[in-house]
C-alpha cells in the first residue's frame, strides 16, 4: 500500500478546499441556511406537524441529505475531472499507485469535505429550528455511508465526463429532482397511493427516510431496507470504478 500517495492526494485535494473556502464551504452552508429560514422559521410555523414533528424539524434530515449528496458528487467529480481536463492526470497515472489508492485519496477527500459541510449545516440549523437525534450512531453511519457512496458516484461522473457540461448534467438533471422528490420536504405518506408506489423506485427516498429515522425515530420505509439500499448503491459504484480502472476507460488509451 502506497500510504504516502494516498496522503499526498488527500492533502492536495483538501488544500483545494481551504483555498476556496468561501465557494466550497461557506456557500453550501448559506444556501441551506436560507432553506431553514424560509421553510423552517418562516413558512414552517404555518404548516402542520408531520408524524408529530414540527415542519421545521422535519425537513432538517432531508436538507442535510440534499447538501451531502450534492457536495459529495460535485467534490468528487470535479476532483478527478479537473486533472483530466488540465492534463495533470499524467502524474497520477505514471505514479506507482494502484487504483484503490487513487480512489481512497480522491473519494476520501471528497467525502471528508462533504462531512465537514454536513456537520456545519447541522450546527447552523440549531440557530433556526429545534431538532433531536435519537440514534446518533445510526445518524453518523448514514452520514458516512452516504458521503462515501455519493463521492464514489461523483468520481465515476468525473471519470466519465469529457466536458464541463457532462460534469453538471447528472447532478442537475438526475440528482436534484430525485432529492426534491425523495421526501426531503414531505412524508411520502402524503402522496396519492399510486405515487407512493412510484416513489419507491427513487433511491434517495430510502436515504432520507433512514436518515430521518435516526433523528426522530419515524420512517417512511424500514430502516434496514434503507441501509441495504445505500450498501447496494455503494457496491454498484465500486464495481463501476473497478471496471473503469480495469479497462482504462476514459483514463488510458
Amino acid at each position: 500500500m502506497n500510504i504516502y500517495a494516498i496522503r499526498a492526494i488527500y492533502v492536495f485535494e483538501m488544500s483545494r478546499t481551504w483555498r476556496t473556502l468561501m465557494e466550497s464551504i461557506a456557500s453550501p452552508i448559506l444556501t441551506t441556511s436560507l432553506y431553514f429560514i424560509v421553510f423552517g422559521a418562516a413558512i414552517g410555523s404555518r404548516m402542520g406537524d408531520i408524524d408529530g414533528i414540527s415542519y421545521g424539524s422535519f425537513i432538517i434530515p432531508g436538507l442535510l441529505m440534499l447538501s451531502l449528496l450534492g457536495e459529495s458528487i460535485s467534490n468528487a467529480s470535479f476532483g478527478i475531472y479537473f486533472p483530466k481536463f488540465s492534463g495533470t492526470i499524467y502524474e497520477v497515472l505514471s505514479a506507482p499507485v494502484s487504483p484503490v489508492e487513487v480512489v481512497i485519496g480522491y473519494v476520501g477527500a471528497a467525502a471528508s469535505k462533504s462531512l465537514i459541510i454536513g456537520g456545519l449545516i447541522l450546527i447552523t440549523a440549531r440557530f433556526f429550528v429545534d431538532y433531536q437525534i435519537m440514534h446518533p450512531v445510526m445518524m453518523v453511519s448514514f452520514l458516512l455511508l452516504t458521503a462515501i457512496s455519493f463521492s464514489l458516484f461523483g468520481f465515476i461522473i468525473g471519470l466519465w465526463a469529457d466536458d464541463f457540461q457532462k460534469l453538471q448534467i447528472i447532478p442537475m438533471m438526475v440528482i436534484t429532482p430525485l432529492t426534491f422528490l425523495g421526501g426531503a420536504f414531505y412524508s411520502i405518506s402524503m402522496l396519492p397511493p399510486f405515487w407512493q408506489k412510484v416513489t419507491l423506485f427513487n433511491p434517495v427516498v430510502y436515504l432520507i427516510s433512514g436518515f430521518r429515522w435516526s433523528f426522530y425515530g419515524v420512517a417512511d420505509v424500514n430502516v434496514g431496507i434503507s441501509l441495504a439500499m445505500i450498501m447496494v448503491f455503494m457496491l454498484l459504484c465500486l464495481t463501476g470504478i473497478w471496471w473503469i480502472f480495469k479497462t482504462g476507460y476514459r483514463l488510458k488509451n
Binding site: I3, Y4, V11, F12, V92, P96
Partner: peptide, 28 residues
Amino acid sequence: LVPQELSIATFESVLTTMNFSRGLFGKP
C-alpha cells in the same frame, strides 16, 4: 516523466506541487 504539454496544477505553489509529486511516488 516530464511531459510535452505544460500540464501543471496552476493554482498551487511550487513547493506544494513538489511535495505532492514526491508523496505520489511513495516517498516520505
